[in-house]
Simulated assay, not measured.
Amino acid sequence: MSVTREGYVISGRTGLPFEEVVERARSLLAEAGYGVLCEIDVAAKLKEKLGVEREPYVILGACNPPLANEALGAEPDLGALLPCNLAVYRQDGRTVVAAVEPETMLSVVGNEKLDPIARRVRGDFERIVGELTGGEE
C-alpha cells in the first residue's frame, strides 16, 4: 500500500471519481467509529464568496466520540484542534485524499497521555486513506 505520511498529512491519490471517493470516505469513517460532524464544500464556498472556480474540494470533519472523550479528559483545551479533518479533492485529473496526521497535530500539545490516542487515530486514518486510494501514488 502506497499511502504517504509526510509532515501534517496522511495522503494518497486515485483515479476513482471524486464523488465516489467522498461517499466511500463517509462509509469508511462510519465503519471505523467516526461520525462526520461537518462537511465543507470548499469549491462551492469559494465560488459563492469570491467568484473563484476550482476543482471539487470537500473537507469532512470526523470525530470518534469515545476517543474524543478520552482526549478531552486528558486535555480539555484539545477541542480547539478537533475534529480530525479528511480532505478529498481533484488535482491533475486524479482524486486526492489527505487526512490530518494526528501524531504531528497532537505533538504541539505536549501531553503524553494523548500519544496512544494519536497512534490509534493515525492507524485508522492510514487504513481509510489506503482503502480509498487503493494504495496508489
Rank of each mutant, 00 (worst) to 15 (best):
P56S: 11
E48V: 03
D124W: 04
I40Y: 02
G123K: 09
I128A: 07
L67C: 10
V109M: 13
T95I: 08
N64I: 10
G51E: 12
S11A: 15
Y8T: 02
E112C: 04
E103T: 15
E103R: 15
A98T: 08
L28W: 06
D92L: 02
P17H: 08
L67D: 04
I59V: 15
P116D: 12
S27D: 13
T14C: 00
R120P: 01
E101W: 06
E48S: 09
V109R: 06
Y57K: 07
A98I: 02
R24I: 05
D92F: 01
G93A: 09
R122M: 14
G35A: 15
I128Y: 02
L29T: 04
G93V: 02
V88R: 04
P83I: 07
N69K: 11
R54S: 13
M105W: 06
E39C: 01
P102W: 10
E136M: 12
A80T: 10
L37K: 09
A99Y: 04
E53L: 06
I40W: 00
G93C: 03
V58R: 11
A98S: 09
S27E: 15
G135N: 01
L82N: 08
R13E: 11
V108E: 04
G123F: 04
M1A: 14
E23L: 08
L50W: 07
S27K: 14
T104L: 14
L114H: 03
G51H: 01
A98W: 03
L81A: 11
V58F: 10
V108H: 07
G7H: 12
R127I: 05
L16G: 14
G79E: 10
R54V: 15
E31L: 13
Y8H: 12
E70W: 09
K47E: 15
G134Q: 03
G130S: 03
E6R: 02
A74I: 01
A32T: 04
Q91L: 09
V96R: 03
L46Q: 09
Y89A: 01
T14P: 01
A68L: 03
V9W: 10
T104P: 04
L82S: 02
A43I: 06
M1R: 00
T95K: 00
L16Q: 11
E53K: 05
R90T: 15
P102C: 12
G33H: 01
V58A: 08
A118T: 05
S2I: 00
N69G: 10
G7I: 00
V109F: 14
R119V: 12
E126G: 05
G35E: 13
F18H: 14
R24G: 00
N85S: 14
V108N: 05
P65R: 09
R119C: 08
V108W: 12
V21A: 01
P76S: 07
D124K: 07
L16A: 14
A71Y: 08
V100F: 00
D124V: 05
V3G: 01
P65D: 05
E75T: 15
E101N: 13
R5K: 14
P17M: 07
P116H: 11
L72K: 04
G15S: 11
V108D: 02
E55S: 15
R122L: 08
D115Y: 10
L29P: 05
L29N: 08
Y8M: 11
L86A: 03
L60D: 12
N64L: 12
Y34M: 07
G61V: 08
G130I: 00
V22I: 09
M1T: 12
V108F: 14
L67Y: 09
V109P: 10
Y57D: 13
G61I: 01
A71G: 13
P83N: 06
L86S: 09
E101V: 05
